[in-house]
Amino acid sequence: MLFDTHVHLNAHQFKEDRHEVITRAHDAGVKYMNVVGFDRETIELALEIVNQYENMYASVGWHPVDAIDMTEADLKWIETLSAHPRVVALGEMGLDYHWDKSPKNVQKDVFRQQIQLAKHVNMPIIIHNREATEDVLQILAEENAKEIGGIMHCYSDTTEYVPKILDMNFHISLGGPVTFKNAVNPKEVAKIVPLDRLLIETDAPYLAPHPNRGKRNEPAYVTLVAEKIAQLRGISVKEVAEITTKNAFSLFKINKSKLEME
């Protein structure tokens, strides 16, 4: 049984066939999913989805690209939602230097506010990092995010940073890029991350794995991620599934009695 730890079933790309997408995921053995909300609209829809389906969880946070739009009321709202029984993490949050909608100083401030909130409510965080690794790690260190830990979502950087990330009490999550023929970094990372700190995801509808690259991604395709990691590490897909699902349950503090590994 697989756990897609980062999926945007709340994206408009799934508006017409969301139920069918979820059914295909279940049929493929993807029993658990974490639906990630990152602004008012996507957070509200994430909660609607997880309230409707079993074995669905949600994360709530504010995306760095839209950091300039976050208000004090939004942050308070996220704090309130953190008490929801299906909300298991805060995020995605972080820094994105690829787009220029939100100035870097605003992104950093909003990132710090969310880390501080996560520490206050004792929840792990999900990190979005695009072209900002050094600054992300510096802020995590300065805010002592090690207290709560979390996930480096869809990690695509080099192996150089892996020891520091692990030392900060973070898991590393790999998605579709690990299957891309020309993507060296994710493959090298997949080989060295300790199994007890490894997670898998799709980030659907984005970053569909090979051979579906360029098409709409969906949670059923996390099986392709698991298969590639198994191949790279020389272990069975079953072992990857069991370990990564167990890791997700542990990190998200989900009642382990619900985890049917048989």
Rank of each mutant, 00 (worst) to 15 (best):
H210R: 12
E72M: 12
L198D: 04
G176L: 04
Q231F: 06
A28H: 07
K256H: 15
R24S: 13
V178N: 09
E16M: 10
S59L: 04
D66Y: 15
H210K: 14
Y53W: 02
P211A: 05
L81S: 04
Q114G: 00
T245P: 08
Q231K: 13
S82Q: 03
R216L: 03
N182D: 14
P85A: 05
G214P: 11
A208E: 07
P177Q: 04
L199S: 03
N255M: 09
V136P: 01
M56H: 05
P163H: 00
L137R: 10
V110C: 12
R40I: 03
G214T: 08
R213L: 06
N217Q: 03
V88F: 10
V240K: 08
M70H: 09
E131S: 04
I43L: 05
R24Y: 12
K15M: 07
D69T: 12
T179G: 00
K108F: 04
A208M: 06
N129F: 01
A67V: 05
L140D: 11
M152P: 08
A58Q: 08
I172K: 03
V193H: 10
A204D: 06
A89E: 00
E239N: 12
E262N: 15
K215Y: 11
T179R: 05
M261E: 15
K215F: 05
A241M: 13
E143W: 00
C154V: 03
N144L: 05
M261R: 15
I200G: 04
D27L: 14
P177T: 01
T179M: 04
R18M: 07
E218I: 00
I243L: 10
K238V: 14
A132V: 01
H128P: 02
K215W: 12
L117S: 14
F180R: 11
F180E: 04
N10S: 09
A67M: 06
R112D: 11
T159L: 04
K146F: 13
I243M: 12
D74R: 06
M261G: 11
E72K: 14
L195S: 11
I68L: 12
K146T: 13
L137P: 12
V50G: 06
K191P: 01
I254N: 02
G176C: 06
P85D: 10
P85V: 11
L137N: 11
N55S: 08
R24P: 15
K119N: 02
N122P: 03
K256W: 09
R213E: 03
V21P: 11
A25W: 06
S250T: 15
L174C: 07
N122A: 14
A183H: 13
F14E: 00
I43H: 03
G149Y: 00
N55E: 12
V21Y: 07
N144C: 07
G61T: 07
Y57R: 01
I243T: 15
A67E: 10
S250V: 12
K164L: 06
K108H: 07
V65N: 09
Y32Q: 00
L232A: 08
K246C: 13
R213N: 09
L199D: 06
F3E: 04
K246M: 14
W62P: 09
I49H: 01
R197K: 14
T245W: 07
G29Q: 08
K31V: 13
A89V: 02
P103I: 01
T80C: 11
D167V: 02
K181W: 03
I126Q: 01
R18E: 11
